[in-house]
Amino acid sequence: MHSYAPILVLAALSFGFAVFSIGAGALTGPKRFNRAKLDAYECGIEPTPQPVGGGRFPVKYYLTAMLFIVFDIEIVFLYPWAVAFDSLGIFGLVEMVLFILTLLAAYAYVWRRGGLEWD
């Protein structure tokens, strides 16, 4: 696993840099207490009270996340297939077209039901 070790070196370097910057930012900047400054920013008006956990947001975001998982897993299957394509030949092509068609049925369903509309 020698080829993975250099990644750790770069990770240590960038992580160290980020931690150092945040530590330095706390030391180099001034500290002047002001109650209004610590409030949530809302263009100068009194901030809207927020429920614990950040409040509610449109359910469309959940739908997008789920669709993403479906298609991302499709892509994960496509990658090794693409790399090995030349040794699989026509058989591999037919198999993958069947797989893509199955997913396209789901895609067409989502489209028809308005899952891809955003309003």
């Binding site: 001034p30 400054k37 610590l38 409030d39 920013y41 901030p47 927020q50």
Partner: peptide, 11 residues
Amino acid sequence: LALKEDIIPKA
């Protein structure tokens, strides 16, 4: 930016 105050909001 380094010489600005590092604010962590109350919420």
